[in-house]
Design a protein around this nucleic acid. Structure first.
Ligand code: MN
Ligand code: MN
Ligand code: MN
Ligand code: MN
Lengths: 222, 222
DNA sequence: AATATTTTTTAGCCTAGGCTAAAAATTTAT
DNA sequence: ATAAATTTTTAGCCTAGGCTAAAAAATATT
């Protein structure tokens, strides 16, 4: 069945919300991310349920069906592959590609996206470190931790970010935090949980807990 | 001002119709190419005139304003650059790219299209031989002739096609007619103006006047 | 010049996807 | 257990961009 841009955006957003919880997704949560009002969301949820892409009972919240998740994953796949294209082939920075990918993710052509995948050498992650589902919709398991979960004196490598808003990414860039950076948690300030962080062996800098929560890392054995 | 997909498609189609005539474009002609009904076209023409993109007086037909032509050319530029990308980088055949480019032409990002242009080495023509407007909206002047205009015993090179429907392109491919082919008009049948045509020095084959009309060539001095 | 045909416009309707305001259900606080 | 607050749904409205059928204008034919 054909999917409109609006439907695809709703499914993608319900998918994203489902990643971080096992509970049903609330109307308000969807409204916030789609930048629409709760009343509009209620309407759309009924339509999506009608098409068999979500399970929805009024007042009970919403969950993707298998069918709906398949569609969401195909949009995520397209979004992330286009982001790789924009950074690797077009020379954009990581903070410039999200909005363009929001448009490109709706281009409908199986053939194109699979050729693009090949052209890019079947990347496993996008420029923000997010995993790219393969043709079958399977996500590679990356097992990253949030920097905020680490204890003091742990060393790690920056593998991704949990948020790709331009302001956040530009902040990271200004701090010299890019994919692959070697990080070491020197001190955790108990007052506000801000972190004193050494980046690539340099003198430590302070980052807030909020920033640390959105940085994904892989521990290094040392 | 922002342009919707529908508006962009209308402007592009009015532009295409204007290329082959100096007269005003009729409501019906637009309806045919947009695959809509005349009543819908009348509606949209009023809106486009309102926005200053066309000159339109009821019952008098329509013409693009300078502003409207600028928009149309930017859509054409995007369409054709994406077609080059699809053929040169993604490995599609020339008969497979038009419909995908119909989608990609609406992606809105000046930065992207200019980077794409550079990535493709600033091509002058698309995979069908059609000229690609530059950043300033200037079309390269190619000066091609329609094969149907040639006299007997004239030699030429196939430089483009005037129609990019998949069936037409597949027919050409089957006849071994691709960009760059050396053609020679051996005989013009006065009955139906069909042409006996030698392709790359091979034994002549017959093509209809209708086919010849849609083949663009450049004469070779011989 | 009058009539017939074709083209274009108008009028009224429809669907998708938004919105606000009010009502209803659920959740939280007392 | 009520009452208050919050969340969600309903009802009614709007715009974009389609449609059909009927009316009006332009064009062609006799
Ligand atoms: Mn989107
Ligand atoms: Mn990303
Ligand atoms: Mn289009
Ligand atoms: Mn083309």
């Amino acid at each position: 069945m054909a999917t409109s841009f609006a439907e695809e955006n709703y499914l993608k957003i319900i998918y994203r919300l489902s990643e971080s919880t096992l509970e049903d997704i609330s109307t308000n949560a969807v409204a916030e991310l789609t930048q629409t009002k709760a009343a509009s969301v209620t309407d759309m949820l009924r339509k999506l349920a009608e098409k068999g892409w979500v399970n929805y009972q009024k007042y009970q919240g919403v969950r993707l069906t298998n069918e709906g998740e398949k569609i969401a994953l195909s949009i995520v796949r397209k979004h992330r592959l286009w982001e790789v294209f924009l950074v690797d082939k077009m020379g954009f920075n990581w903070d410039e590609v999200h909005d363009i990918a929001e448009q490109l993710e709706h281009i409908e052509s199986e053939a194109l996206i699979n050729k693009l995948d090949e052209f890019l050498d079947f990347p496993k992650t996008d420029p923000h470190g997010d995993p790219i589902p393969n043709k079958e919709g399977i996500l590679p398991e990356l097992g990253y931790l949030h920097l905020s979960e680490l204890k003091e004196n742990k060393a790690c490598i920056l593998m991704g970010v949990a948020k790709d808003s331009a302001v956040f990414l530009q902040l990271l860039t200004r701090l010299n935090l890019s994919l692959g950076a070697k990080l070491s948690v020197k001190e955790i300030n108990p007052f506000d949980r801000s972190i004193s962080l050494s980046i690539n062996e340099n003198a430590p800098v302070f980052i807030s807990h909020e920033v640390a929560k959105n940085i994904l890392v892989k521990l290094t054995k040392d």
